[in-house]
Design a binder for these strands. Structure first.
Lengths: 152, 152
DNA sequence: TCAAATTTAATTGTGCACAATATAATTTTC
DNA sequence: GAAAATTATATTGTGCACAATTAAATTTGA
């Protein structure tokens, strides 16, 4: 049989704290690697998206990363200051701001290839464990994102 | 055989992004529940620790939550403003600031018992799955926290 | 066609995170 | 027991997150 979940307020028993602590620890592990590239962790995520597909709008970046314009607008301005991206209103629809990589932004891609390799070394995890944990987190996020049509 | 991990820069393949996104989504799921208690998510974590053991110092809270004084000092001042905790220097060592629950802080404990129950309903996870994922995240965080005596 | 509704970014304000530094109290060492 | 080192908290500054509001462009619909 599967034991039923007994909710408590003990910190060490909380999934939410394990998630929160692991996420901050992961970001801290990336920090020295990303410092070398002149990027913060959220800036790195934006660059990942743009390296996959350049020329997205702020809205499209936000959908991909689940971040709103209040976060992205200043972040993108800092990337623009660093000469990694350009920002310009689209001719076809002036409400949209298109973000494009500069040459320096494109050049950074190659140096960034080291980052996941370094992390993989730190993880001491098999590819299978890695993918299973990743997919469990994705499905957890999807479940929490789903509209709450549950009775309480 | 176990396939070897091939590091890429594709967002959807990154464990780190799955972790980051799941953590933010979890916090967002807590938000409406904690709003009802007048707490933010990090404030709730501090209260969890104090409900388990009252009268800790800022340093001890920081060790438990892996947060430094730059985060905790203003957060604790807001909890003090909300009359949930008191702060006072210890007589035995005036460098230390002891945090104690007020009566209102203790009273909040009972109302908070609903929070993990509501979350458990949202998760649609067996207790076994819950505990396994939680423990995997704990061991991931521990691994990343360990000193990097790896060769690259 | 033109007013209303919608969409998209930007702005504002609050609250973390965290690095770096400052300050004050305590402990250690000589 | 006084100088030096250590410890604990607070402060400052930067950069997210995210809610709420604003502003501008576009679309919709009578």
């Amino acid at each position: 049989m599967t034991s039923s979940l007994k909710p408590t307020l003990l910190l060490d028993e909380q999934l939410c704290f394990a998630l929160y602590a692991a996420s901050r620890r992961m970001t801290a592990t990336y920090r020295p690697l990303l410092d070398a590239l002149g990027l913060t962790y959220p800036q790195y995520l934006v660059m990942l998206v743009l390296w996959e597909r350049d020329g997205l709008t702020v809205r499209e970046l936000g959908e991909r990363l689940q971040l709103d314009s209040g976060t992205l607008t200043p972040l993108l301005k800092r990337l623009e200051q660093a000469d990694l991206v350009g920002r310009r209103r689209r001719k076809s629809d002036e409400r949209e701001v298109e973000i494009t990589l500069t040459q320096a932004g494109r050049n950074l891609h190659e140096r960034a290839l080291d980052v996941p390799r370094c992390l993989a070394n730190r993880l001491c995890m098999s590819a299978d464990e890695f993918m299973r944990l990743r997919d469990e987190l994705k499905s957890l996020a999807a479940q929490l994102a789903a509209p709450t049509d549950e009775r309480d």
